[in-house]
């Protein structure tokens, strides 16, 4: 039994293996993991066919093959994965070595399910956290602490 390169602690045959062989990925996260595994195994056909149609022609296959070849893939970390119907988001961190340097790729990927197949749509590299919102409380508004008093006579005094 070979353990799956995607670091799922499962065997390749029970994890990314069938997806690379063409079975539909059960979730956006499973698809993302299988695309990482495809890079590790130099199976760029899988990466190419799991792109959403609108970005398929933008895929620089030649460069992807070079990257697969030159990188020593060390570890995949899925930081967060959410799904809402046919829309999915997976935030991940890939640890690898290239040209003798330890590198990390941090991305928040957007996925979409089409005809039962999950596809990669886009990614934000080094994503920013949710924007922090600062709300100014007026002096005469109810105090945000919930006391029922005006802000100016409560916490804002």
């Amino acid at each position: 039994m070979t353990s799956c390169p995607c670091c799922s602690d499962r065997s390749f045959d029970e994890c990314c293996g069938p997806i690379l062989a063409g079975a539909p990925a059960p979730s956006a996260e499973a698809l993302m993991r299988s695309r990482y595994t495809a890079f590790v195994r130099h199976d760029l056909d899988h990466v190419e066919r799991t792109h959403a149609p609108e970005i398929r022609e933008d895929f620089n296959r030649a460069e992807a093959e070079r990257v697969a070849d030159e990188c020593d893939w060390q570890r995949l970390e899925v930081l967060r994965a959410t799904e809402d119907g046919d829309a999915g988001m997976v935030e991940f961190l890939i640890h690898f070595r290239r040209d003798g340097l330890d590198m990390r790729h941090h991305e928040r990927g957007v996925f979409r399910r089409e005809d039962g197949n999950w596809l990669y749509v886009s990614g934000e590299v080094n994503p920013k956290g949710e924007p922090r919102r600062v709300v100014k409380v007026g002096r005469n508004e109810p105090c945000p602490c919930g006391s029922g008093k005006k802000y100016k006579t409560c916490c804002g005094a």
């Binding site: 030649a62 070079r66 070849d69």
Partner: peptide, 12 residues
């Protein structure tokens, strides 16, 4: 690196 890329593109 570019040699690999060109090989790969030429093979497509």
């Amino acid at each position: 690196g570019w040699a690999k890329e060109m090989d790969s593109l030429a093979r497509r």
